[in-house]
Design a protein around this nucleic acid. Structure first.
Length: 422
DNA sequence: TATTGGGCTAACT
DNA sequence: AGTTAGCCCAATA
């Protein structure tokens, strides 16, 4: 089994230890199995301290723990109360009150005093706390005061209660783990921008992490027009946008075509996938991107319920017009218009369009997205593996490839691919 | 619910 | 104007 990397251990511990519902026994096993990170997250540190405190709420060492907790960023509010309660209990319950009180509260080096006085932790200091520290200091050698303080602070269960209150507040405020925060960035608020900025490979990872349902939702939002982006839509604006598009097209005609590079990347990914033993190989794919070495005499059985009757079984016969394109770029300026009013080059169909969009009440049609080479090849393999018609199986087994596609999309694409040449 | 076939339309020649 | 890939819808199993 591959070893857990320090970074992986850090993420796991941050996630698991920070979950108060995970029992101490499980935490102990995890800590024994994983290396403790050299740069633990504040959440992990907090979780470790809270668990240590829960196991040993009232003692000299819990005083250490409380002081460490106070040094972490954004401590919960009851920490000062818990800290002074523990310190006071230790002194009040000591057989030698004077010695204990001196060690804890006397100027200048009393341990609790150092923690709450000027220069100590602001999280542990308050007027009330300072007053208590002063009372204990003043009680050294004063048996009456000692009796009073023992009565006030000598109750272990009350002290423990203060610590439990602190624990509850700290756990409630511990916040999400790094993993949860990362997941939130992928599927929660702001996910759309994250996905929009991601390249294809990163999106494939997001897809796996987010799950099918979330992926579909985010991709849906991604392609959704943002109505506020271009609230003004006039003929003049549309003309200007058309002009921009034209100049972009002109620019593309003189700069290097990015398609070959994108295709090379796609081919590499495909070749890696095919190393599992499928008969296609990288050379074949590179040499003839729209054909498939698995076709021919041993062509897959497109039988079953598939639309195979009278259709070519040799993949060399693929409809040559079923062309392959690069992935579309992330939605550009176009996506900011309503798809119904999206500006584009003049089309005969658009000429008679009424000023009142007839489809206003219908669901918006998804933006057309060309199929990339990887999708086509994966579809072919999927049909070989699962059979034509099992579109959902094919889709579910290639979620990192068919991003934003539905089973019906796969069916339609296959229909196009096996369509006879007209 | 998943799949299918017919039909529609944006995008392109 | 014609063609096609991609998408939608309603029927069906």
């Amino acid at each position: 089994m591959p070893r857990v990397t320090p970074a992986g251990a850090r993420l796991m511990l941050d996630h698991v230890l920070g979950d108060p519902s995970v029992p101490a026994a499980a935490v102990d096993k995890l800590l024994a199995a994983l290396p403790f990170p050299s740069d633990p997250t504040p959440r992990l540190l907090r979780a470790v301290l809270l668990r240590r405190l829960a196991a040993d709420p009232v003692s000299e060492s819990s005083l250490d723990t409380l002081q460490l907790l106070a040094s972490l960023p954004a401590p919960a509010s009851p920490i000062a109360a818990a800290h002074i309660a523990v310190a006071a209990f230790i002194a009040a319950s000591a057989s030698d009150f004077d010695a204990a009180a001196r060690a804890l509260f006397a100027r200048p080096d009393g341990r609790a005093r150092l923690a709450v006085d000027e220069g100590g932790s602001p999280a542990l200091a308050s007027d009330e706390v300072i007053a208590t520290v002063d009372q204990f200091e003043a009680a050294v050698g004063n048996s009456f005061s000692q009796t009073v303080l023992r009565g006030l602070w000598g109750d272990r269960s009350a002290t423990e209660e203060r610590v439990r209150e602190l624990l509850a507040a700290e756990w409630a405020a511990i916040g999400p783990s790094l993993l949860v925060a990362a997941a939130e960035r992928i599927v929660g608020d702001g996910a759309v921008e994250k996905w929009r900025a991601a390249d294809e490979a990163t999106r494939a990872k997001f897809c796996i992490l987010a799950g099918e349902e979330n992926t579909r939702e985010v991709l849906g939002k991604l392609e959704e027009p943002t109505s506020s982006a271009n609230p003004i839509s006039t003929p003049a604006v549309e003309k200007a946008i058309d002009a921009l598009k034209t100049s972009c097209a002109d620019l593309h005609s003189v700069v290097e075509d990015p398609l070959p590079a994108a295709k090379a990347v796609a081919d590499e990914v495909l070749a890696a996938r095919l190393e599992k033993g499928v008969s296609l190989n990288a050379e074949e794919v590179r040499g003839q991107p729209t054909t498939c070495g698995t076709a021919g005499p041993s062509a897959p059985n497109y039988k079953d319920k598939g639309p195979s009757t009278g259709k070519p079984h040799n993949l060399m016969d693929w409809n040559p017009t079923a062309r392959t394109f690069q992935w579309e770029e992330s939605p550009g300026p176009e996506s900011s218009e309503s798809s119904l009013r999206r500006p584009h080059l003049p089309s005969p169909r658009r000429a008679p369009v009424s000023p009142l969009p007839p489809l206003e009440n219908k669901n918006r049609r998804r933006r057309t997205r060309k199929w990339c080479l990887l999708e086509e090849e994966t579809l072919i393999q999927g049909v070989e593996q699962y059979g034509s018609g099992n579109w959902k199986d094919i889709l579910n087994n290639n979620p990192d490839v068919f991003i934003g596609r539905t089973p019906v999309d796969l069916k339609d694409k296959w229909r196009n691919m096996i369509k006879p040449i007209m």
